[in-house]
Design a protein around this nucleic acid. Structure first.
Length: 245
RNA sequence: UUGUUUUGG
């Protein structure tokens, strides 16, 4: 069994996911005792190969055989589903994971919020956020940034703005991601004063503008037709050695 | 040897 585990791991590492899976399918006859590490390697491989359904099935199967999926197996299945924008599955397995007594990491929460939001399930994303705030996992800057991004994409910029203030109240310092999201989206809805104010606040807070935040600002200025000001800004940034694309 | 950091134009 150890040898097989190492072999499967090697196959996966070398990108031969299909062969690894094939090998595994042949060596898991019913009733055979399989150790958890073997399942783990295999499920990682399946997730990597984007065979999410198979990975999920295997997790169910191992559970039925009396070998409970561990923290890493759950995390792997949840996060890979999130990355593939498979919101329903991610949500279901996340639930299973917590019911099994595991506490997903903050980043797993963040990924789920992002995934749910991108699938248009704003309310579900909010729920994850709220449960997180209630439970032992504290929302971090990325949680707020993710939530703000989700809200903005849904056209709910005002709510994003509320979360921005909420974040500050909870003692978190907005970073350049936080500012960029709001500067971009305030600009898109024509609230230029708010957008510019936030850009200045960002600079004053000591977070140096980078290529992305400047591009956002410039496209904002372009939107208002203020091409001259955009060009001036561009020149000023070039002088500071910032190279924009 | 078996890794889970996820968010902005």
């Amino acid at each position: 069994m150890k040898t097989y585990t190492i072999l499967v791991n090697l196959l996966v590492k070398n990108g031969h996911n299909d062969r690894a899976i094939e090998l595994c399918e042949r060596m898991i006859p019913p009733g055979r005792r399989i150790d958890i590490n073997f399942y783990k390697v295999l499920i990682f491989a399946l997730c990597k190969a984007r065979k999410f359904d198979l990975a999920g099935q295997l997790a169910t199967e191992m559970s039925q055989r009396g070998c409970k999926p561990d923290f890493h197996i759950y995390t792997s299945i949840v996060t890979s589903n999130c990355k593939a924008d498979r919101a329903e599955d991610a949500q279901a397995i996340f639930k299973e994971m917590t019911e099994a007594g595991f506490e997903p990491t903050p980043s797993t929460h963040n990924m789920l919020i992002d995934c749910l939001g991108k699938s248009g399930k704003i309310d579900a994303a909010y729920t994850v956020f709220e449960e997180m705030s209630k439970g032992g996992v504290r929302p971090d800057i990325i949680t707020y940034n993710t939530l703000m991004g989700v809200l903005c994409k849904a056209g709910r910029v005002e709510e994003a703005w509320k979360q921005f203030q909420n974040m500050k109240r909870n003692g978190l310092n907005p970073d350049k991601f936080s500012y960029s999201i709001l500067v971009d989206n305030f600009g898109k809805v024509g609230k230029m004063a708010e957008a510019c104010g936030l850009f200045i606040e960002m600079v004053e807070s000591g977070d140096a503008p980078d290529v992305v935040s400047c591009s956002i600002l410039i496209s904002n200025l372009g939107r208002t037709g203020d091409v001259h000001q955009a060009c001036e800004l561009f020149k000023g940034l070039a002088q500071k050695g910032l190279h924009l694309d």
